[in-house]
């Protein structure tokens, strides 16, 4: 090893698990998994591989107004030794309180915050800004980045950067920004937008949408300096292994754990 350099906050690699009725819903192609649909076992595997954090997203919750999975959060907190965020269907303080007490480190709020921005203030006041992640699905409409709801299906009136700045001023502790134009394309993150957002805020930004190769992670950190990058399928299908990804980031002098 070389001499210790100036310590820096590590860039975080975050696998995202989509969960429905307590089971992971996207296909998972890990070897050695007894049950690929068990989010806790999958999470444990990711933590062993060196994931820095996990996000659990109940993809049906917003649509069905279903409350998030307190039991899942408890199972994860019992077995996983890294931080995790839970999102989906969190509409009020009582939801957040139940998830905090079940062991969640952060909650992610998307549609509920757009519909009722004061919820951000209330959550930050009740639990601290570090508990409140604002998730935003953005898509370009007529040349402008516009906030969308319900998984990108419903456009809002809000311009993305304006909404992010409002969320920060109301008490968001972190921004999870998913480009719906890039999501699923495996063509890389939306580095232009991410850089603009990252330069505009003083809270951490998680990049999401578009990861298809190791180079895309290098690009997003080098070009935008965001704090974390999130992906789902490239990890679930084993197309990118987290230890290999971190080796390459390290070789590119990007600080990782």
């Amino acid at each position: 090893m070389t001499v210790a350099c100036q310590p820096m906050l590590a860039k975080r690699i975050i696998p995202c698990l989509d969960v429905k009725d307590g089971r992971t819903v996207k296909g998972v192609n890990f070897v050695d998994l007894r049950d690929a649909g068990d989010p806790v076992e999958l999470a444990w595997n990711y933590s062993r591989q060196g994931a820095d954090e996990l996000v659990f997203l109940d993809i049906t919750a917003t649509h069905e107004r279903r409350k998030t999975m307190v039991e899942l959060v408890k199972s994860v907190a019992r077995q996983i030794n890294i931080p995790f965020t839970i999102g989906g269907g969190i509409n009020e303080i009582a939801d957040a309180d139940a998830l905090l007490n079940a062991g969640a480190d952060k909650i992610s709020i998307n549609s509920a915050a757009v519909r009722n921005p004061a919820l951000i203030d209330e959550l930050a006041k009740a639990f601290g800004v570090q508990f409140v992640v604002i998730a935003i699905d953005t898509r370009v409409n007529n040349g402008k980045n516009i906030v969308h709801l319900n998984g990108g299906r419903i456009p809002t009136e809000k311009e993305t950067l304006d909404w992010i700045l409002e969320a920060e001023s109301r008490g968001a502790g972190e921004i999870l920004l998913t480009s719906m134009d890039h999501d699923g394309t495996k063509a890389g993150f939306d580095n232009g937008l991410l850089k603009k957002v990252n330069d505009a805020v003083n809270i951490p930004v998680i990049a999401s949408g578009g990861a298809g190769s190791v180079q895309h992670f290098v690009d997003v950190f080098e070009q935008t300096n965001v704090d974390a990058a999130l992906a789902a399928s490239v990890f679930h299908y084993g197309e990118i292994l987290i230890p290999d990804l971190k080796d390459i980031l390290r070789n590119r002098k990007i600080e990782v754990r």
Binding site: A4, G173, E174, A228
Partner: peptide, 11 residues
């Protein structure tokens, strides 16, 4: 950025 959120080195 604040909060200081994430993995940092401890000496």
């Amino acid at each position: 950025k604040v909060p200081h959120t994430g993995w940092n080195q401890v000496y």
